[in-house]
Design a protein around this nucleic acid. Structure first.
Lengths: 230, 230
DNA sequence: TCGCGTCGTTGACTGCAATCAATTTCCGGC
DNA sequence: GCCGGAAATTGATTGCAGTCAACGACGCGA
């Protein structure tokens, strides 16, 4: 819990929010540094809060009374997300050390949107992208086998968060992967081991995956046939 | 295929789009009558198309190469939805006879949003509601048992589409329910039979469900314990 | 340095739901 | 009415992934 996090100004320089018109937000950013497991409160004003992930990772998590969790959204650097109290009992938590967010009061955002139509349009696009991602995840949860789930997760990370060498650094624990894909931790492990034995990936440390045979991975996602031989 | 559908003007009178500012859309509504199974093309202009369901039901459906389907969104009367070509290979189809939609060209909608901030805000709210529903569905697909899935489906229909007597008229076939909940048709049947035997529901015809013991149903959704006795 | 706790991995067994198969019910057309 | 096909239901069996259990790896603090 003693990870030292650099000053807010350091991160403010990293803002450079992606879509053009949304850059107007930069001026109002309030930088938040969160430790692992820290909850982002949804205590906000009536208009909710917008957030932008600078570093780390954040989960939106639904918990059942028996303790079973489902991560319904996983936010990585350069993602926007919106939190309102109307959002049913989902909790929002930082899940990586050194998670840094920019936050924007919802009322302020509404005010800008009211005056700037292209800003409003980009907000709308953010919402639709979230919706599309969420619906893609519905297909994965509903109709993918455990192996396919893990494979598609690696591919999506490769698109969102791969380093220079084509290695994917898993931003989250096995437990979080399991809760995101709606399988057990053990199943995530077994799937990774399986892919490793087939020569599709290698593990460089627990948290770093190198994809050796991308097309094999992609094929498994579009087909659902699981040919034994690699 | 010969269901006779009344003239467009008949349905135009039923429009009365719910949110206040969105009523501006009524003037541009183009009424579409669809037969069962008919695909709503996503051929649209660059800005996509908005739709509003007047009667019937519509599904947004992702299909895998092996034929396994997942309904990622189910639209019922008084629902808005948006279709763009960027939306990955999802197909959109009417699934009830006499499905009637109002459609609005995306460019026209954008134009109104550009000039009318409260209209734009309501569009945004529609998008967030869709997102929230989709994320709730992620929890259901990921962490609910088959029985719980069917139970929560009945409850949500009861909220969205129940008639005067508290009876729920299923707007879709068992196959669609199965594809929506990511279970097999047989499992849907067994779950309904099970609930019937427990005295939680009765079936008045294949498509009409009466909920006898709502609290039993709700308890099963929040807990995940499945006590044998009713 | 040694514990201690969390994370990660592997194995053995179990259970829920998928699949395969057979029948019945419903509904529209002739 | 009768017939044909789709929808719905029930039963028997199989298989994938969950659960339970044990152990190894790693990091952190005393």
């Amino acid at each position: 819990m003693k990870t030292r996090i650099p000053a807010a100004d350091y991160y403010r320089r990293m803002l450079a929010v992606q879509p053009h018109a949304l850059k107007r937000l930069d001026a109002f950013a309030k930088i938040m540094a969160c430790n692992r497991g820290q909850e982002i409160p949804n205590n906000p004003g009536p208009a909710g809060h917008w957030y932008y992930v600078i570093t780390g990772a954040v989960r939106r998590c639904a918990v059942r009374s028996d303790g079973r969790r489902q991560i319904v959204d996983l936010m990585l650097p350069r993602d926007f997300f919106f939190v309102s109290d109307s959002q049913n009992e989902a909790t929002i938590e930082a899940i990586a050390e050194e998670t840094v967010l920019a936050s924007y009061p919802g009322q302020r955002v509404e005010l800008i949107a009211e005056r700037d139509a292209s800003f409003a349009r980009e907000l709308r696009e953010v919402a639709f992208q979230s919706l599309t991602r969420s619906q893609a995840q519905l297909l994965i949860l509903g109709r993918f086998t455990a192996l396919e789930k893990v494979g598609s997760f690696l591919l999506s990370l490769d698109g969102r968060a791969s380093d220079a060498n084509g290695q994917v650094v898993l931003p989250v624990s096995r437990y979080d992967i399991a809760d995101y894909l709606a399988v057990s931790v053990e199943t995530v492990c077994r799937a990774l081991t399986d892919l490793r034995h087939r020569g599709v990936i290698t593990l460089a440390g627990k948290r770093t995956v190198k994809i050796l045979n991308r097309s094999a991975l992609e094929d498994r996602m579009s087909e659902s046939s699981m040919v034994a031989g690699v």
